[in-house]
Design a protein around this nucleic acid. Sequence first.
DNA 1: GACTTATATAAAGAAATCATTATATACTAA
DNA 2: TTAGTATATAATGATTTCTTTATATAAGTC
Lengths: 115, 115
Amino acid sequence: METLAKQSAADVTACLKAVSDPTRLLMMKLVETNELCVCQFVEMFGMSQPAISQHLRKLKQAGLVKENRRGQWRFYSMNKESMHVPLLEGILSHIEDTDPQVMALRAKEAPVDCC
Amino acid sequence: METLAKQSAADVTACLKAVSDPTRLLMMKLVETNELCVCQFVEMFGMSQPAISQHLRKLKQAGLVKENRRGQWRFYSMNKESMHVPLLEGILSHIEDTDPQVMALRAKEAPVDCC
DNA sequence: GACTTATATAAAGAAATCATTATATACTAA
DNA sequence: TTAGTATATAATGATTTCTTTATATAAGTC
């Protein structure tokens, strides 16, 4: 069942800009089902912590992820209330489950107190 | 009926980068059904001819449009053979038909020998 | 051939993007 | 309170993107 909530071209562009970066697209694929904290992203992507934080900020500003604070950690997951969810889910569904990049990232998923 | 031809995350990113620009997204919306020549795009978008040509080149390099030469004109239309068609159609389907930008562009559509 | 028209390509500059290092904030624990 | 950990923000620089102006190519016309 494909929900077809339509939006303006400008809104679609805003969503596409947010996920047209390889790191952020993969991030969205990961948080589609999981909730992950910043330090986990850092481990998985092998990127500096500020770089990860800035990508997450862009996703948050676009309304694609929501932040959940628990203890000293901040968890990110897909914002299912976003107007962009139908579009976003549609895009993510085109990434094959066996995608090597996604597989490699998931293999590196460490416990929350990884850092 | 939603075709679900899956691709690698890298391929999806390549497609998204091509259409995450407002001009190019609208261009794809227009050539989804129509075949348009460069001078028509120039009229419709009110942008310089080289700017239009460069956007078209990016779309062509991504395999999203095909070029058809007839006389002195070059017509562009969606490349229905592209691996990205299912993803692309999915994205375009989220743009509402009454979108003001799309409507404004279509209203400006001039005959081919416009220039 | 010379001239016009449609389009592509090149060159250049402003603005946006994405990374890094350095620093600030905020929560936890002792 | 002091120290440590997790994350955000600021500052900076390299690269990319998007536009414009200038020039080249290629087809059509006289």
